[in-house]
Design a protein around this nucleic acid. Structure first.
Length: 433
RNA sequence: GGCCCCGUGGUGUAGUGGUUAGCACGGGAGGUUUUCAACCUUCUAGCGCGAGUUCGAUCCUCGUCGGGGCUACCA
């Protein structure tokens, strides 16, 4: 059985366990439900503690951190070794594990090979507090042993804990699991990735609109690569090719630009059906006020909107702003208006409007044919006509393809909005004149 | 300070005792173009440093420098 240990060094409260499970679900990873809480396992921990005490493999001791430090200084850096307290003195004392003075504890890491720690240098670790509750390094070891864990995968930051856990296994006389310590992810500043780096967690990646398959692909490539330089891989291929022993040992810096690029690739390759459901999930979760408008549209309208926007967006969160004008009455981006709607576009735009009025079939192809013919006969540049139309119908200067957009918006609403724009332009001009 | 890990362009990586050191992201230039993207072509920049081993080191060894992690009666 494999155990993957999270690197969030916080107490496992129900809330953050649920958060982790939530992230795993989003990533569509398989896992086994049923981690036992320390509380549930307290009996077992107590029994093992008693066993070690009985065998004199652990002892009661009250040394404080300062005393331990003093001991080490006095003993040339040697690991702390206490003296067992007995009787009344032992009441309310913490329990320390005895570490052998000789030899070394070696971690046979699947990724890094053998790492040796001299026992002489290790402090006798506290495994239970004076109130009887157990400490992490003891608890995980016992839990791993009793749950039949055979492999542990976790971050590099746990590497120096491993000898302590191995020592517990040794004292208990139990075969330890195999360990694989993954290199840590760092932020652009080279420090361990954390909250202040922005998208430090899977949850945040989701909120920013990344696709789970892209995240899986990207993460797999951090610290690992294929020998034939394949970059984009579906999950089946990832599973097929990934080898834990091939993971690199150096920590990697999380590069959001590359994730964005990769996510864009996955966005474009998706089939329209899942594209739409992804968009809908995102809207419901993050833009509830838009979700209704989107859901109210007819299935073909929604599908077509997805189709024309698919090439445009790198992340899911970019999709809605590009197509919102199809589902709601857009406000006007005044900066865009000012930039595009110069007096000189009045005539071309009005001309375009007339052309559009008489287009027979309101579909992409005929619309394009008609407008291009108009441009040609009037010797107008596309910018002069198409861009104003874009601003008129979408309320901004960025949108999907203009012919597709017109087609998606429909004849009536398109003409209406363009008429509105022409009118405003006229008004502004007469006011200016 | 102590213990431990790591070191190929700005970033992620591939690779080798003799290579024009490959790929991808980014950046630059050009092309395509109705906006933004996308797309195509092309350029850019790297084996941290110093010894040693060797006919020959990016690759092996040692040292050094640099980066990182851990250093609780936290997890």
């Amino acid at each position: 059985m494999l155990r993957i240990e999270d690197t969030d060094r916080e107490r496992s409260t129900a809330a953050n366990v649920e958060q982790i499970l939530d992230a795993l679900r989003w990533l569509e990873l398989d896992w086994d439900e049923g981690p036992l809480s320390q509380y549930e396992r307290a009996d077992s921990h107590r029994a093992r503690l008693a066993q070690l005490l009985e065998a004199d493999l652990a002892y009661r001791d009250t040394a404080t951190a300062t005393e331990v430090k003093a001991y080490k200084e006095a003993n040339d850096g040697r690991g702390y070794r206490g003296t067992a307290l007995t009787g009344l003195e032992a009441e309310g004392a913490a329990i320390r594990l005895r570490v052998p003075d000789e030899g070394e504890t070696v971690v046979a890491d699947l990724i890094r090979g053998e790492i040796r720690f001299r026992n002489e240098l290790q402090d006798d670790p506290v495994i239970a507090r004076s109130d009887g509750s157990v400490l992490y390094n003891f608890a995980v070891a016992v839990d791993d042993a009793e749950m039949g864990i055979t492999d542990v995968i976790r971050g590099d930051d746990h590497l120096s804990n491993t000898p302590r856990q191995l020592l517990v296994f040794a004292a208990l006389g139990i075969e330890p699991p195999r360990y694989a310590h993954l290199p840590l992810l760092h932020g652009p500043d080279g420090k361990k990735l954390s909250k202040r780096h922005g998208a430090a967690s899977v949850q945040e990646l989701r909120e920013q609109g990344y696709l789970p398959e892209a995240v899986r692909n990207y993460i797999a490539l951090l610290g690992w690569g294929t020998d034939d330089d394949t970059t984009l891989m579906g999950t089946d291929e990832l599973i097929e090719r990934f080898e834990i022993g091939d993971v690199g040992r150096a920590s990697a810096i999380f590069d959001e630009q590359k994730l964005r690029w990769m996510n864009g690739r996955f966005m474009r390759e998706q089939d329209l059906g899942s594209y739409e459901s992804r968009l809908r999930d995102h809207l419901e979760r993050d833009v509830p006020e838009a979700a209704g408008a989107f859901a109210a549209a007819s299935p073909p309208e929604r599908r077509y909107a997805c189709e024309i926007v698919q090439e445009k967006a790198q992340v899911v969160t970019e999709v809605w702003p590009l197509i919102a004008f199809l589902f709601t009455e857009p406000g006007m981006d005044e900066a865009a208006w000012k930039k595009v709607m110069k007096p000189s576009v009045l005539e071309p735009l009005a001309g375009g409007l007339e052309v559009l009025r008489v287009v027979e079939a309101w579909e992409t192809e005929p619309l394009e044919t008609a407008l291009r013919k108009f441009l040609e006969s009037e010797e107008l540049s596309p910018r002069k006509v198409l861009q104003p139309i874009r601003v008129a119908i979408s309320g901004g200067s960025i949108s999907p393809g203009i012919f597709e957009s017109l087609s998606a918006l429909g004849r009536e609403r398109s003409l209406e909005r363009i008429e509105g724009a022409v009118e405003r332009l006229r008004t502004e001009q007469s006011a200016g004149a």
